[in-house]
Simulated scan of single mutants.
Amino acid sequence: MLGSGRPSIILSTLKAAIVVGALSYVAADWLSNGFDRDGLARIAAQSQPEPLVTGSLGDALRGGRLDPCGEDAR
């Protein structure tokens, strides 16, 4: 297979993966250099912290009703 003059599918795939990876790295580096890091840091500092919902949903879910008619079945 290697001596037939045709490139191996494994080598072709490896070359393509290396080229795609290198181009992706260059594109990501180019894009990240265009960001205003100070502006992004200000936005991150001004944003509200994520709510802590662990355990707080249980009571709300237990109190919910799934009756589509809206009448109490008791």
Rank of each mutant, 00 (worst) to 15 (best):
I43D: 05
G55R: 00
E71D: 12
S12L: 14
I18Q: 10
A41I: 04
L31Y: 10
S56L: 13
V19P: 01
G5M: 01
R6F: 07
P68W: 03
I43S: 08
T54N: 09
A16D: 12
I43K: 14
S47Y: 02
T13D: 11
G5S: 03
G34T: 02
Q46D: 12
A27S: 12
I9R: 05
L31I: 14
P49K: 05
L23F: 15
L57R: 02
A45W: 02
C69T: 10
G21W: 01
A44R: 11
F35H: 11
L11W: 08
P68Y: 02
G63N: 04
K15T: 15
D29R: 14
S12I: 11
R62W: 08
R74V: 03
L14N: 07
C69Y: 07
A44G: 08
P68R: 00
G3K: 00
A73N: 07
Q48K: 13
S32F: 11
S56Q: 13
A41W: 04
A73R: 01
A60Q: 07
L2A: 11
S47C: 09
I9F: 04
M1Q: 04
Y25T: 15
V26K: 11
R62G: 06
A73E: 08
S4Y: 01
D29G: 10
F35V: 10
S56H: 07
D67K: 02
V53L: 15
A17E: 11
C69I: 04
S24V: 11
P7R: 01
T13S: 14
I10W: 04
R62F: 09
T13R: 14
E50L: 13
R6V: 12
L57C: 08
I9T: 08
L23D: 05
S47M: 12
G5D: 00
W30C: 11
L23E: 11
I10E: 06
R42Q: 13
L11V: 07
A44T: 13
Y25S: 15
R37C: 00
A44D: 06
Q46V: 04
G21H: 09
L52Y: 09
L40S: 06
L61F: 12
G5N: 01
A41L: 13
R62L: 09
R65Q: 04
L23W: 10
T13F: 05
S4K: 01
L61A: 08
V20W: 09
T13V: 08
G21Q: 00
D38T: 12
D59C: 02
G64F: 07
R65A: 11
P51Q: 10
S12N: 08
F35G: 07
E50V: 09
S32E: 06
R62Y: 06
P7Q: 03
L14C: 08
K15W: 10
G64D: 01
G5W: 01
D36T: 07
W30E: 06
T54F: 07
I9Q: 08
A17Y: 04
G3C: 05
A44E: 05
D36I: 01
L61N: 04
T54Y: 08
L40W: 11
A22N: 12
G64S: 07
S47L: 11
A60N: 03
V19F: 13
G70S: 01
A28E: 03
A28W: 03
L23G: 14
L57W: 06
S12E: 12
G63H: 02
D59T: 05
L40G: 08
A44K: 13
I9H: 03
P49Y: 03
S4A: 04
T13A: 15
S47K: 05
E71K: 00
G34M: 06
L40D: 04
Y25V: 15
G55V: 01
I10P: 00
A27V: 15
